[in-house]
Design a protein around this nucleic acid. Structure first.
Length: 421
RNA sequence: GGAGAGGUGACCGAGCUGGCUGAAGGUGCACGCCUGCUAAGCGUGUGUAGGAGAAAUCUUACCCAGGGUUCGAAUCCCUGCCUCUCCGCCA
């Protein structure tokens, strides 16, 4: 969340951010409530100060065995009043919090302004575009022909969007996950966490998925737990309510997890095959760092994600997201889109974001700086990367004329085989 | 699931027969001193969040969370959550 004091002092900037991000936060109501709450706070404080002072007087009198009945009867009235003020105050505080939690993070100044993805800025293209002397098939045909993925049976047992990876498909998927996990640990210095797949409301609020996206998540009502839409949630909240030392920073974590997304209402062509799923696998990178270092860490994470695509020799492009396409909590995001030669389109496989102190404030993650002062670290995260679309790009890029798939060299340690029909 | 114990500051840990405790002591951290041989000794300082104020400063809240009793609660009562120990069940 944004510092309330900052909002109070820079309302125009916040309002502009709300507009640029297509959010519906009610800034006017927030400011009005803030005003009235401060008055109430002052009133409450004044009464409370009086009560505290008189309590001392009463205590002293009693100790000296003097009569305090006059003070006692006076104070019972004040106690009444305080109780009433307190009730009002805690109600206003709750309302204020709920309004504050709906104020989005402010995009950085170099983020392109525009209310949808058409304003995203293509920064560069990387990797070779492969050419074949035959017409490349798309991943659905290849997966089917090689018996790698069973969409029908997945739909039978769970519904559409829940594929079953079978036989070599399962091994390939597992190899991808292992390759990426190892790569980030060995080459990029991340430390692995294996995290719960269900988290509570507080954690979901900490990273900013709640309150906005409640309807997009699978939920266990009985226990008020949510299936994670990304490992970002448990990994970032790992340090929730903790005070770190500046010496601990930066912290780099990588985690593999399945990701669960309801994404109600997103049906159509897009949902065919592996492109859009309710459950998919992803390796996620998360960083906690000193505020002044976060821009550098964002670029490093982008490199880390790109390294995976480069390791497979895939063609991809790097996008800087426009304000309207930025997530609620992000202040700057790069997307990586890999080229799928069979489907002939770019597919998003990674989103790398800097959240500034936005998430740290929400999750109450702090650190003590060299001078001993409490500060909020900056948090960042990036997919490194999501497997389904990586799988698409690999199947389509490594196909042979006969419909078989060549296994990329980097996966050899996990998968020696060549997949044949 | 049953029985017991407990949740205090960055961390550990006193207090818990209600008022003089925002909270002893230690560790850590910061600064200074001393000493010099593999690391220590000594001194000083060190809560967070909100409100008022130009500032000095004043003030409020906070001892898991939420209620209650009381003029007054870290301390008493209730509810919830969590942790630990023992028993049961189970992968």
């Amino acid at each position: 969340m944004i510092d309330l004091k900052y909002i109070r002092q820079n309302p125009e900037q916040i309002q502009q951010a709300i507009i640029n991000k297509n959010e519906k936060a009610d800034l006017a109501a927030l400011l009005a409530l803030d005003e009235s709450r401060r008055k109430l706070q002052y009133d409450f404080d004044t009464h409370k100060a009086e009560q505290n002072r008189m309590s001392d007087v009463i205590a002293t009198k009693k100790r000296n065995k003097e009569d305090a009945s006059k003070e006692l009867s006076e104070m019972s009235l004040v106690a009444e009043k305080i109780k009433q003020l307190q009730a009002e105050l805690s109600q206003q505080n709750a309302e204020l919090d709920s309004l504050l939690l709906r104020i989005p993070n402010v995009p950085e100044s170099d983020v392109p302004i525009g209310n949808d993805e058409s304003f995203n800025e293509i920064i560069r293209h990387e990797g070779e575009l492969k050419k074949w002397d035959f017409e490349p098939q798309d991943h659905l045909q290849l997966a089917q022909a090689n018996g790698l993925i069973d969409f029908m049976r997945g739909a039978k047992i769970s519904g559409s969007g829940f594929p079953v990876y079978s036989a070599l498909g399962a091994r390939l998927e597992r190899a991808l996950i292992n390759f990426m996990l190892e790569y980030h640990q060995q080459k990029h210095g991340y430390s692995e966490l294996m995290v719960p797949l269900m988290v509570n409301r507080k954690a979901m609020t900490g990273t900013g998925q709640l309150p906005k996206l409640e309807d997009d998540m699978y939920r266990c009502n009985e226990d008020d737990l949510f299936l994670i839409p990304t490992a970002e949630v448990p990994v970032t909240n790992y340090y929730m309510d903790e005070v770190l030392s500046y010496k601990d920073l930066p912290l780099l974590h990588v985690a593999y997890s399945p990701c669960f997304r309801r994404e109600a209402g997103s049906y159509g062509k897009e949902t065919r095959g592996l492109k859009r799923l309710h459950q998919f696998n992803k390796v996620e990178m998360v960083r906690f760092c000193l505020p002044e270092d976060s821009p550098r860490h964002l670029e490093e994470m982008l490199d880390n994600a790109e390294a995976i695509l480069k390791a497979f020799g895939l063609h991809y492009r790097v996008l800087k997201l426009a304000t309207g396409d930025l997530s609620f909590a992000s202040q700057k995001t790069y997307d990586l889109e890999v080229w799928a030669p069979g489907s002939k389109e770019y597919l998003e496989v990674s989103s790398v974001s800097n959240f500034g102190e936005f998430q740290a404030r929400r999750a109450n993650i702090r650190y003590r700086d060299a001078a001993g002062k409490m500060q909020f670290p900056h948090t960042l995260n990036g997919s490194g990367v999501a497997t389904p679309r990586l799988m698409i790009a690999i199947l389509e890029s490594y196909q042979n004329a006969d419909g078989s798939i060549q296994i990329p060299d980097v996966l050899k340690p996990w998968l020696e085989l060549r997949i044949n029909k």
